Computed example of a mutant assay.
Amino acid sequence: MSALKQRITDDMKAAMKSGDKARLGVIRLILAAVKQVEVDERIELDDERLLSLLDKMVKQRRDSISQYESAGRTELAEQEKFEIGIIQDYLPQQLTEEEIAALIDEALAATGAASMKDMGKLMGWLKPKLQGRADMGAVSASIKQKLAG
Rank of each mutant, 00 (worst) to 15 (best):
S2L: 14
L4D: 06
D10H: 12
A14N: 08
M16C: 02
S18G: 03
G19V: 10
D20N: 08
D20E: 13
R23L: 13
R23F: 10
R23D: 02
L24G: 00
I27W: 05
I30R: 04
L31R: 00
A32K: 14
A32H: 08
A33D: 00
A33P: 04
V34N: 04
V34Q: 05
K35L: 13
V37C: 01
V39Q: 09
D40F: 12
D40K: 12
R42Q: 14
I43Q: 09
E44H: 08
D46M: 00
E48W: 10
R49L: 12
R49A: 14
S52T: 11
L53I: 12
K56V: 07
K59L: 13
S64L: 13
S66Q: 10
S66P: 03
A71S: 12
A71V: 05
G72M: 13
L76C: 05
L76D: 08
E78M: 10
K81P: 06
G85R: 03
G85A: 07
I87G: 03
Q88E: 15
Q88A: 13
L91I: 09
Q93N: 10
E97P: 03
E97C: 03
I100C: 05
A109T: 05
A109D: 06
T111R: 03
S115T: 14
K117T: 02
D118V: 00
G120C: 06
G120M: 13
W125P: 01
W125D: 02
K127H: 14
K127S: 06
K129E: 14
A134S: 05
D135W: 11
M136D: 06
G137L: 15
S140V: 07
A141C: 11
I143W: 04
K144F: 14
Q145D: 03
Q145G: 01
K146P: 01
A148Y: 09
